[in-house]
Computed example of a mutant assay.
Amino acid sequence: MLTKGGTLVVTECTTPEPGLHEVLIEVQAVALNPIDVSQQDRGLPPVPMYPAVIGCDAAGVVPKVGTHVSTVAPGTRFQKYALAQSEVQGAGRPLGFKTAPSAWTTLGIPLETRYVLQDEHGSARTLGFTIYATASTKHHAYLRSLGADAASDFHDSDVVAQIVTAVGKEGIELRTAHCVVPRGLQPMPEVLKQTKGNAAARVAHSPVLLPGHPTLDNTEVKFNLPPLDQAGRDKHMHQCFHGWLREGLESGSVVPSPRVQVEGGGLAGLNAAHNKLKAGVSGVKVVVRI
């Protein structure tokens, strides 16, 4: 439980009842995300009221389902609980996966888009895009194994020139981007300025967009957000998890990534795990077993 401006505390709460289209999850592990730290430290995205239960990723067993849920069978064990849409198939709400396809629909690119045959891994590869990724050099081989066509180190002072050169060699226009880390937007306008030609460019930004963020003429920068209306959101979530995730895992076009870094301490260890995430991790997902 989060109090305003405070740390997470362990407290007893009433076990929620699942709604008509929801499932109740016995949470056995939670994964931490930068958005959790942002909500704890700055209250962004806005927390409607305090005290609040925050968190986006969870995995466990389903003990109870809503009366309109037919795709998930209830389990038998009860301990720690959370609510989630039934499309999650009992695996919680994997924010990292939802972030990728939601970026494309945020920019008006349907998930049915296919420019080339599917190969390799990842949402951008499935759509058929040529992928220019940035990461620490030690992760470049791993990114290429997931489908990136080229990778640059964002620590390099000439990272913009590296990307521009790589795009130029392919003879294509780069006019769609997805920023997934804070400060990732800073070099993006310069990259697009030199690679998008005369076309309009679009950028999805997964961290919260702050006032005064970098911009570029004829370029739209939008906060990555699924549809807000209930019907549109339900359809999108079903397409992400029931379609892309389940089918992708079965076919091998989607693979779990990155590797998991398990922290101990259960619920009481969440603050320590948050501190490790804030201090900086690289190429891992911090997970706490409950």
Rank of each mutant, 00 (worst) to 15 (best):
S206M: 05
K285D: 08
G108S: 01
L2P: 05
F154D: 00
Y115P: 07
K64C: 06
P34C: 06
H238V: 09
G43K: 00
F241G: 07
A204N: 02
P74I: 01
C240W: 12
V9Y: 00
Y50K: 07
A59L: 02
K98S: 13
S251C: 07
A200R: 07
G55F: 01
Y132Q: 04
A135W: 01
A151I: 03
G243V: 02
P207Q: 03
V61P: 03
E120Q: 05
A31M: 00
E22S: 12
P94D: 06
G264P: 08
P207M: 02
V69D: 01
P16G: 03
E87S: 13
L2W: 10
L32T: 05
A58T: 06
I35S: 15
K235Q: 14
G252P: 07
K235Y: 10
G283Q: 00
H238I: 02
A166H: 03
P227L: 04
E112N: 08
H21A: 08
V284F: 10
A141I: 05
V61W: 05
Y142N: 09
T71H: 12
P187D: 00
N218T: 00
K98I: 15
G280M: 04
H155Y: 15
V47C: 01
P187S: 11
W104E: 06
F223K: 08
S251E: 09
V53Q: 00
I109T: 04
L32R: 01
K98F: 12
A279L: 01
T99V: 15
R77A: 13
T67E: 14
D234E: 14
G283C: 02
G147T: 01
V180I: 12
T106G: 10
K196H: 04
L143A: 13
V9I: 09
K285N: 06
S251R: 13
R77P: 02
A199Y: 14
A59V: 06
I163L: 13
